[in-house]
Design a protein around this nucleic acid. Sequence first.
DNA 1: AACCACTATGTAAATCATTTTCATTTCGGA
DNA 2: TCCGAAATGAAAATGATTTACATAGTGGTT
Lengths: 288, 288
Amino acid sequence: MRDILSVLQQIEPDLSKSERILAALLRDDAEFIVNAGITDVAERAGVSPPTVTRFCRRLGCDSYTAFKVQVAQVTFAGTRYLTANAASAAPHDVADSLLHQMQEAAVTTRQALDMHAVAQAADAIATAGMLTAFGAGGTSSMISDEMQNRFFRLGLRTVSITDHAMQLMQAATLKPGDVVIALSVSGRNLQMVRALEAARTYGATVIALTRPHRPVADLADITIGIDLPEGDNILRPSSSRFAFLYVTDLLATLVAMKRGDEARESLRRVKYQLSNSRDPDDKEALGD
Amino acid sequence: MRDILSVLQQIEPDLSKSERILAALLRDDAEFIVNAGITDVAERAGVSPPTVTRFCRRLGCDSYTAFKVQVAQVTFAGTRYLTANAASAAPHDVADSLLHQMQEAAVTTRQALDMHAVAQAADAIATAGMLTAFGAGGTSSMISDEMQNRFFRLGLRTVSITDHAMQLMQAATLKPGDVVIALSVSGRNLQMVRALEAARTYGATVIALTRPHRPVADLADITIGIDLPEGDNILRPSSSRFAFLYVTDLLATLVAMKRGDEARESLRRVKYQLSNSRDPDDKEALGD
DNA sequence: AACCACTATGTAAATCATTTTCATTTCGGA
DNA sequence: TCCGAAATGAAAATGATTTACATAGTGGTT
């Protein structure tokens, strides 16, 4: 994902004095640039219009207009952009930075998504006899549970298993037509690989949401590759959770659409039982 | 969040013939518009430049350039925008639409975020004697568990409780200096309210992530309001999960920064023990 | 310290895109 | 079929951006 502020960061050392002023302006008030002409920008920075044009060229844009468009894209919805590991500790900046990281994770995932594999996976899930989600470790087990939460609502027999021994045992009980969703951020969960091998032995279909070309991916019938660079700030939670959750929602939605009225009826029942329970406050819980 | 394609949708009925052609072009190939001049757009649509200018004005933009900037913002990173409940069932469109919904949820949450409350909450959590997360129902219990997952890594004594009876019992054991994080999408979980009352009785600080001006919010010492409109397509998972997850990450990051070296040491230990276990494949699990 | 060469920057002219003005066309209704 | 209002386009005018060129600045060399 090419974005102009990353470019800026890369070439910043090579910049001249006037260009640095412009760089500072871009960082401090991209909003202003988006709404201003080249003359206004030049004036505010105390440089001449041609200098602004040259600055745009340096950043890889053909014209000032092209530059403005690029800036507009990173200031999406008025959010200030910050590099992923900005040193600033101000809560505002952290909030903006995390937001950006999350959006980048989502967009990157969307762009790299193999829609053919997704469609295949949705088909397999929609017609599964039994649906089993395998996950282990922070992200993977959370997503595994979330898979169960999404698919049981649609009337699918679903279970989430986040324990390696239980995964192996469960795998031994599967039959052709059953589907296993394997979740692994790293793709190198060898104990899970063993369980998946067992599942395949008994004829189950394995769908993997994981990093491509890793043991888990290699073993799957259908692989939906999710490959995000890990941030290098250890204090921040990884944004891969958002990517996995996004794909989960996508699969859930596609399966729900495929199952149509059956899914609707099932969702209605879940809602009905909830509102009939002694928990009048939980009425809105179905939407979640 | 004002966005040009929502505006387009609203005024579409009032549009003239030429303007409709432009509207179609905008929807089909916003990317093109972003990279083209008014002449190119006019030519491609088979209309004259003044018609394009007038079209931009209709959409509330002062000039063609302003229009282009708006378009650039919705085509952020080349993603095709689709209305939240696009009727199309094509997997591609569903994927784009869900992505957009997710981004909108995140941006809306960010914009409405009371950073003062967030900072207060981070302070309270960072210095808590015991940290207890309460959640119940699909989203809330998932986020509750995720809170535990995020904060225990930082060396905080943390537990997630998603059972109403257990919440009440746990509340009875709390002491001043302890912190409860209450998670409720609807804000009307009355059983949770009872547990929170008990927690406050014993001197614990209550932080609520919930809809403002609802029972859960009213009872909290610190309320971080999260208020998203529910989508009207029942087949889609709610995007509020992304909003809650985002705030979770924000709190986790701020607390980690506040605790600094102590958090780093704790994270290092978690990693060390993981890589020392017989699971060589789990080395990357810490990042998650 | 003075000079040279190179780069950076600004001025002014030229170009180009966009907008305005105004004339023409189109369309609905009498 | 004609009228009037709205829509559209042609051409001129405007205004912004870019180019060309001149000047100023900077760093290195003698």
